[in-house]
Design a binder for these strands. Structure first.
Lengths: 211, 211
DNA sequence: ATTCAGATTAACCAACTGGTCAAAATTAAA
DNA sequence: TTTAATTTTGACCAGTTGGTTAATCTGAAT
């Protein structure tokens, strides 16, 4: 068999998955290299053999996860659909995605907030200005019909995104107020219900908006 | 002069303020007792003299901040106003509050998420069921007119709360997409603008809602 | 079978971190 | 001024943590 070049990609993958788990659960400061090694079923020295430092390992994981999240958010808005259809599709797909990755929002938001330096590497790649212009120009008529000016786009986009992300980020706070939300199935059902609720809410708001 | 009883309350206060700062900035795992002592202008031993352990100090800070946040959220909904007026008042006051405490949302949400044990102490105090019933019964007519059933209340309340909290929690992510948001004044202006945007958005959605 | 680069490990280390302790300083009362 | 309690400090300690090193193992090519 041919060797997978430098580094055994199987081991590298085990490490990456373990690191993703631990960082997502505990955050950078709370994560322990020993625990990552344990979960990957390897020695701590081997961990450092594949990823020299904790920072390097973290950045590798962080960048992959951040891109994963942003791709999900932006991909839909590139499609050739009406704005209304896009919102519906976005909520459906993004909530599905987050049900499978429930810790992702809090992990990303917190790490970006606690250590803003992590954003330096990705800033160029995540160009919102382009997306906003694209969206606004593509849907100029529809949006103007709703009384949305270009300058309203940031408020609108953040409102839409928060509809799916916020409940996951705030899940524990929600569970404190509504104990039944500790049950995974009930929380997921709540998010399934939210697909429709949020879509209706947004459409109604847009249609009826003060101009 | 009379002694302030056991413990010098001035020193205690300095410690508490320093701890609040450091915990808010770095989170529990990232905070260092040495840094808290430094910022309070005291010795690390004295820190442990006032608060025996890091956990105790953290819980003291956490509980105060959590209560501060919840009081702001719930107080307004107890008042004797129409639901519509309450939403407007809530957005105005809560956004004002968060502009003065911009790190609070991320701190609370993250700590609750990373270490759910912190919630045990406050669970009883933060009874949402009571609040929800109170609100729904107080505004039954108005809400039914909007097509909101009692079972819709969780979705609605979370949507309203996220309008003010989410942009603060997601500030760094927002700033990655819209670099001008790094500027405090521009971000605060954005949140001032949001008071009106969110209120209009919610009212319009309610008025025009599918039933 | 030998070789040799790459993969894996056990043992180790220096720096950091939360926490302790005994002594010193401060304060208010006697 | 003396006394006794409280407050503050410098020095110290044990456990943890990220990271290193030298030795060993593995497996494919010679």
């Amino acid at each position: 068999m041919v060797k997978a070049s430098v580094n055994n990609s199987h081991t590298r993958d085990k490490i990456f998955k373990a690191a993703t788990q631990v960082f997502e659960e505990k955050g950078f400061a709370g994560a322990r290299m020993q625990e990552i090694a344990d979960r990957a079923g390897i020695n701590k020295a081997l961990l450092h053999y594949y990823f020299r430092t904790k920072d390097q390992l973290f950045m590798a994981v962080f960048q992959v996860l951040l891109r994963k999240m942003f791709e999900k958010i932006t991909a839909i808005f590139q499609a050739d659909l009406s704005f209304r259809e896009k919102i519906k599709l976005f909520l459906d797909q993004h909530i599905d995605f987050l049900i499978k990755n429930p810790n992702l929002p809090m992990f990303l938001l917190n790490e970006m907030s606690v250590n803003p330096a992590v954003n330096d590497g990705v800033r160029e790649r995540l160009n919102y200005g382009g997306l906003r212009d694209l969206i606004y120009e593509k849907h100029a008529k529809e949006l103007k019909g709703y009384g949305i000016r270009k300058s309203d786009m940031p408020q609108l986009m953040i409102t839409i995104i928060s509809m799916s992300i916020f409940p996951f980020a705030a899940r524990e706070m929600i569970a404190v107020m509504m104990p039944q939300m500790h049950d995974n199935r009930k929380f997921n059902a709540f998010m399934e219900e939210r697909k429709g609720f949020a879509a209706d809410f947004i459409f109604s708001a847009l249609k009826h908006r003060k101009k």
